[in-house]
């Protein structure tokens, strides 16, 4: 594991709005190089908004976002992405009318072309089904295959930071295990830093080095994966179902 104490991504007091509605109300998080960090929280807490705000869509209305020491708060999405952040967003959003291969080629857009052939083989090794389906249109893939394609597409850009929004959503347990295995592999073998949003808190926290719990657009709790798994509030709210987490100082 190539983990250091160097912060790769830092959010300071980040706020985001949809029109007048606040979705992020001052978020501070840090992701260090080489880590897997998991973000959990109830529906509507603002997890997807957080990942999208990192990518500049929407832009943070307040606060700062630093990536590798550089202020990316005001940059446009494609500039941020080209600096080494890739996202497999909520809902997968693969290009349905393009082939699997074209989707992967698009993912490789911001990577040096010399790596393309090797990266493609790497993605195919990780998700062999994509190789079999490479000439097929993205829209004809099953949900799980689309999820693999979304992750593969993100990997093709050789990101330093990989943002994954609910990669296990709607997948059969076997596939969930396969996807989580792939995330661990990407992190361990390539040293890719991962920020993972998950509903499946149990598996996600077991996979993660550290985690954050988000409530109502704020970070309510943080700790190592093991600490959060042992926390009674987290267990009550996200692991056994039931009473929501007490929200320290939220409106």
């Amino acid at each position: 594991m190539s983990m250091s104490n160097e912060a790769l991504l830092t959010l300071e007091g980040v706020q985001s709005f949809y029109g007048h509605i606040a979705a992020l109300r001052g978020v501070d998080i840090t992701v260090r190089a080489g880590e897997i960090v998991t973000l959990i929280g109830a529906n509507g807490a603002g997890k997807s908004t957080l990942l999208m705000t990192i990518c500049g869509n929407p832009h943070a209305a307040q606060g700062r976002i630093l990536f590798d020491g550089q202020d990316i708060t005001r940059m446009s999405s494609h500039e941020i992405v080209r600096r080494g952040i890739a996202q497999a967003p909520e809902g997968r959003r693969i290009f349905a009318r393009m082939t699997v291969l074209e989707n992967l080629q698009l993912g490789a857009l911001s990577a040096p072309p010399t790596h393309y052939a090797r990266d493609l083989q790497r993605v195919f090794a990780l998700f062999p089904v994509l190789k079999q389906r490479s000439r097929q249109r993205g829209g004809t893939l099953s949900g799980g295959e689309q999820q693999m394609l979304a992750i593969g597409r993100a990997l093709m850009s050789r990101p330093r930071l990989l943002l994954l929004d609910e990669p296990s959503l709607g997948l059969a347990p076997l596939l969930v295990r396969q996807i989580f295995g792939a995330i661990r592999e990407i992190n361990a073998l390539e040293g890719t830093t991962v920020l993972l949003v998950e509903q499946d808190a149990f598996h996600a926290l077991r996979l993660a080095h550290r985690g954050y719990v988000m409530v109502n657009g704020r970070i309510a709790l943080t700790g190592t994966g093991a600490e959060l798994l042992a926390n009674p509030d987290v267990r009550a709210a996200y692991l056994e179902g039931g009473v929501p987490l007490p929200t320290a100082g939220s409106s």
Binding site: C55, V81, R93, F95
Partner: peptide, 15 residues
């Protein structure tokens, strides 16, 4: 073609 299908996602792959 990517912009035609999903402009926000297109910018997320660096277009």
């Amino acid at each position: 073609r990517a912009c035609e299908q999903d402009r926000a996602m297109a910018s997320l792959v660096g277009i």
